[in-house]
Simulated scan of single mutants.
Amino acid sequence: MGEPIPVNEPLLDGKEKQYLNECIDTGWISSEGPFVKQFEAEFATRVERKHGIAVSNGSMALDAAIVALGIGAGDEVILPTFTIISCAAAIVRAGAIPVVVDSNPDTWNMDVEQVEAKITPKTKAIMVVHIYGLPVEMDAIQALAQKYKLLVIEDAAEMHGQTYKGKPCGSLGDISTFSFYPNKHITTGEGGMIVTDDDNLAQRCRSLRNLCFQPQQRFVHEDLGWNLRMTNLQAAVGLAQLERLDEFVSRKRQMGQRYTELLGNVAGLELPLPRTDYAENIYWVYGVVLTDEVSFDATEAMKRLREHKIGSRPFFWPMHEQPVFHKMGLFKGESYPVAERLARRGFYIPSGMALTPEQIERVAVTVKEILSEGGQ
């Protein structure tokens, strides 16, 4: 059966050790160290932004972005129901109201054609979340934002190195956020980044990141912030990773193309779109969806893979089906069938940066096996 194949393993064989040793040798391990500003500047340049604000994780990047934009009690923010809970949680914690739309069945991103019908006088922003490998169709979103004078929050957590019509993901919102969790193209272990071109927004985010300390009277606070600081150690790893982003993007696309070659003719599987007219899939993860002809669901498929020592992960569970939000009285009676189907029949297979060609072959063989083991 072979050694276990984890769903994700990062690649850390660049200059990570060299930069970490520099942190240790100089004693600069906290957020005051020089790698933080260097990482912020180089990452912002990469995504064609004026400002980069490094933070402790991608979830808190969203929290800070929402507060920095002045979104609060009674405001509505439109977002996809098919996303990670961090997106809706940031809205709810600010006292605002999440309003969700269903997914496009082909790209798995938010269905942009459903957004306009959800806009009300209370709508303050649209939060776009680029899902799994392809970006949201941004022209339509930006047209709506202009028409209704709405803010655009771009969650580009999964899109390091991806572009939309040649423009970097992360450059497409009033404010944009990234995650550097270990399964991302660039990792710092835990970490995130807020990027923007707006000087005031950037200043506000930096203040919120640092407990809203004031320059003149450090321990006198006009506002409440968080300690969201990224350490020099994390930024050192991030900088080493950023240096290899083009290589990593190429590697991910090769992985995705190989999986598609091996699984393209397998009955019972819907595979990710290789491209749209505005982007080529970056395959942050390689997701598959069981067709309706398959009698079992994603939970059973992942169980079968686990028995073969193959790691996998479920797709996101929709926001409108989250018990925590039902307890708050949100999304009562709402149904979004595409997202519900993706959640129940979708999962992703090993997709980490360190995945080898041999492992890809074994995963593909195993996926074919579990679909032919009966119950289909």
Rank of each mutant, 00 (worst) to 15 (best):
P4E: 12
N8M: 12
K15Q: 14
E16T: 09
E16H: 08
K17D: 11
Q18I: 10
L20K: 13
L20E: 11
N21G: 15
T26M: 01
T26W: 01
G27Y: 02
E32V: 01
P34L: 05
A41T: 13
A44E: 08
R46I: 00
V47N: 07
I53V: 15
A54G: 06
S59N: 14
L62Y: 09
G72V: 13
G72I: 07
V77D: 11
P80D: 07
T81Q: 05
T83I: 10
S86N: 15
A89I: 04
R93K: 15
I97R: 15
P98T: 10
V100R: 14
D102F: 03
N109I: 10
N109G: 14
M110T: 00
Q114D: 12
E116H: 02
K122P: 01
A125Q: 05
H130M: 06
G133L: 10
L134V: 08
P135K: 03
V136I: 10
D139L: 13
D139N: 14
Q142Y: 01
Q142C: 10
A143T: 07
A145S: 11
Q146P: 01
V152A: 08
G161L: 03
T163M: 11
K165F: 02
K165I: 00
G166A: 12
G166T: 11
L172P: 05
Y181M: 09
P182G: 04
K184P: 00
G189P: 06
G191L: 01
I194M: 06
A202Q: 06
Q203V: 08
R206C: 09
F213G: 09
Q214K: 11
Q214V: 00
F219R: 08
D223N: 15
R229H: 02
Q241V: 04
R244P: 05
E247V: 13
F248E: 11
F248H: 15
R251F: 01
K252L: 07
R253E: 10
Q254V: 03
M255W: 12
R258N: 01
R258P: 00
L263Q: 11
L263V: 08
L263R: 13
G264V: 01
L269P: 05
E270G: 11
P274Y: 01
R275D: 08
D277M: 12
I282D: 08
Y286Q: 09
G287A: 11
V288Q: 10
D292F: 03
V294N: 08
A301G: 03
M302L: 07
I310V: 09
W317C: 05
P318M: 10
M319G: 05
Q322A: 15
G329H: 07
K332N: 09
R341E: 14
L342A: 08
L342Q: 04
L342T: 05
G352Y: 06
A354D: 13
T356V: 05
P357D: 13
E358I: 14
V367M: 14
I370F: 11
G374Y: 03
Q376C: 02
Q376L: 15
